[in-house]
Design a binder for these strands. Structure first.
Length: 375
RNA sequence: GGGGUCGUAGCGUAGCGGUCUAACGCGCUGCCCUGUCAAGGCAGAGAUCGCGGGUUCAAAUCCCGUCGGCCCCG
């Protein structure tokens, strides 16, 4: 299992490559749909195969609460349980420390949660999170982290980073135990440091010096900060990283953002955005985005995106999909989610081709000329 | 023919003398969503309170008439 860089942008930092995992090779840059509860919302595994999705993200914390780690272990692991054959990267649950802040207490040892499902109390530690992931049998493991909110002071971000680094060290001990027991995961510890370049640098140095990392999960972005701060901080963090390790930017994934992230050297991304906005009617097309709920779509007997080859665009009109949305027919969530995921895959494919052909900047410019022209 | 009851935004309803610059749900229009507590959230448009008259300082609200719907009796 390894990561190999295949091509680099001659003028920038973008690169393409292949990540070999326990469940197949993943060409990068890659966008990974989010399957928090062992399901990409509204999308079946048949759909994932039809899309050609090689990698997805699931969530240790959510699966631990329901259906329970024991059950998935008894099923033969997460791949067998959900019958997905591609790579599965599992998030630690660290993000839920932030997003469900009213339900938890953090201390130096770990996090005490109250379940959002039944209110029961649970304890998540660095070791526990590794143990959950070994039971799930996912391909890429992350670590329990603390994501400081935006805005935070440097002192707050530093405290969160220190905690995260301590948890990473403890995760390594647990990881080694799992490896001794025969597990062969790729280890993607989570990087924090807020929006402070020195802290991000320290975080990378910590990995370099003390952690046997296969790749890095870059956390703490897209939490409400201004975009230029996102990119400048990310750019700085990546500048300290070695070229031979894959960089996974957590939770980023609008069309604008994936282009920008890849241009800064990101290899992997996940985001709920394409599937979430699909469930709320927003469609991405080569000519920008629109909402299927908007009145003019009711009478448009044309595909969502005339240049899209996905089955939804080949078969159904906007008028029909508009009707399904208004009627809240359940299949609409599948159809719109599928199209948006297909669109994201298209973008990633364009990027990989561009990198192979050495014309990344030109392709990017061409993409946005059409994208920003609008409907 | 007599008696009763109801008539408030596109639809269904609330309000039944001053707090009504008329509320709520659905629908409609638009925006938002970035390691999913999310088939969600926010905002907006839309009503001379059936019509006419009266009482009152003040009427969607009380009275009279009228038109329309529904129910009961004949």
């Amino acid at each position: 299992m390894s990561f190999k860089v295949l091509a680099k942008d001659k003028d920038g930092k973008a690169r393409s490559g292949v990540l070999s995992t326990g469940h197949g090779d993943v060409e990068t840059p890659v966008f990974m749909p989010v399957a928090t509860q062992a399901s990409v919302k509204a999308i079946s595994q048949e759909d994932l195969e039809r899309l050609g999705t090689k990698a997805i993200l699931s969530n240790s914390y959510h699966l631990y609460l329901r259906p329970g780690t024991d059950l998935i272990k008894a099923a033969g692991g997460l791949h067998k349980f959900m019958d997905y054959k591609g790579m599965i990267l599992t998030d630690s649950g660290g993000f839920q420390v932030l997003s469900m802040s009213d339900l938890r207490k953090v201390d130096d040892e770990g996090v005490t949660f109250r379940s959002h499902i039944d209110g029961s109390e649970h304890r998540l530690t660095a070791e526990k999170v590794i143990e959950i992931q070994s039971d799930l049998g996912s391909d890429c493991w992350t670590t329990l982290d603390e994501c400081p909110p935006y805005p935070s002071t440097e002192a707050q971000a530093e405290q969160a980073l220190n905690r995260t680094m301590t948890w990473t060290d403890r995760s390594v001990t647990a990881l080694n135990r799992a490896k001794d027991a025969g597990h062969k995961p790729l280890f993607f510890p989570i990087l924090q440091g807020g929006f402070f370049p020195d802290l991000r640098k320290r975080a990378v140095e910590h990995l370099q010096e003390k952690v046997p990392w296969d790749g890095v999960s870059i956390g703490g972005f897209s939490i409400g900060e201004p975009k230029d701060l996102t990119w400048s901080t990310l750019d700085g963090a990546i500048s300290h990283m070695p070229a031979d390790k894959p960089r996974y930017l957590m939770g980023v994934g609008t069309p604008d953002d994936v282009w920008q992230a890849v241009s800064l050297g990101v290899d992997m991304m996940d985001c709920v955005w394409p599937t979430r906005v699909a469930r709320n009617g927003q469609i991405m097309t080569r000519r920008g985005k629109f909402n299927i709920q908007n009145a003019p779509q009711r009478r448009k007997f044309e595909p969502l995106d005339a240049d899209c080859a996905c089955f939804v665009c080949k078969r159904y009109t906007r008028a029909y999909l508009s009707h399904l949305y208004r009627a809240r027919e359940l299949v609409i969530y599948q159809l719109l989610s599928y199209h948006n995921l297909h669109f994201m895959d298209e973008i990633m494919a364009i990027m990989r081709t561009a990198l192979a052909e050495g014309n990344f900047a030109e392709r990017r410019k061409a993409f946005f000329e059409v994208y920003n022209a609008g409907q």
